[in-house]
Simulated scan of single mutants.
Amino acid sequence: MLLEIQSLTKRYPGSDGARPVLRDVSLSLDAGETLALTGESGSGKSTLLHLIGALDDFDAGEIRLAGQALSGLGESARAALRRDVVALVFQQFNLVPSLTVAQNLAFHARLAGRLDAAWVRELTGRLGLDGLETRWPEQLSGGQQQRVAIGRALAMRPRLLLADEPTGNLDEATSDMVLSLMLDLVEQSGAALFLVTHSERIAGRVRRRAHLSNGTIA
Rank of each mutant, 00 (worst) to 15 (best):
residue 4 E to G: 07
residue 11 R to A: 05
residue 14 G to I: 06
residue 16 D to W: 13
residue 22 L to H: 07
residue 25 V to R: 03
residue 27 L to M: 14
residue 31 A to L: 13
residue 35 L to M: 12
residue 36 A to E: 00
residue 41 S to G: 12
residue 43 S to K: 03
residue 51 L to C: 03
residue 55 L to C: 09
residue 56 D to N: 11
residue 56 D to Y: 07
residue 60 A to K: 08
residue 63 I to T: 00
residue 64 R to G: 04
residue 70 L to Q: 09
residue 76 S to T: 15
residue 78 R to E: 09
residue 79 A to K: 07
residue 84 D to Q: 10
residue 90 F to L: 13
residue 93 F to H: 10
residue 94 N to T: 04
residue 96 V to H: 09
residue 99 L to M: 14
residue 101 V to H: 06
residue 103 Q to I: 13
residue 104 N to E: 11
residue 106 A to R: 07
residue 108 H to D: 13
residue 109 A to M: 12
residue 113 G to S: 11
residue 118 A to M: 09
residue 121 R to D: 15
residue 125 G to V: 05
residue 126 R to Q: 14
residue 127 L to W: 13
residue 136 W to C: 12
residue 136 W to N: 10
residue 138 E to Q: 14
residue 139 Q to S: 15
residue 140 L to Y: 13
residue 142 G to K: 06
residue 143 G to T: 04
residue 145 Q to Y: 09
residue 151 G to I: 09
residue 156 M to P: 05
residue 160 L to P: 03
residue 164 D to F: 06
residue 171 D to E: 10
residue 176 D to V: 06
residue 179 L to H: 01
residue 182 M to R: 07
residue 183 L to C: 04
residue 189 S to Y: 06
residue 193 L to R: 01
residue 200 E to P: 07
residue 201 R to P: 02
residue 203 A to F: 00
residue 204 G to N: 07
residue 206 V to A: 02
residue 209 R to Q: 10
residue 210 A to F: 00
residue 212 L to Q: 00
residue 216 T to P: 01
residue 217 I to Y: 02
residue 217 I to F: 00
residue 218 A to Y: 05
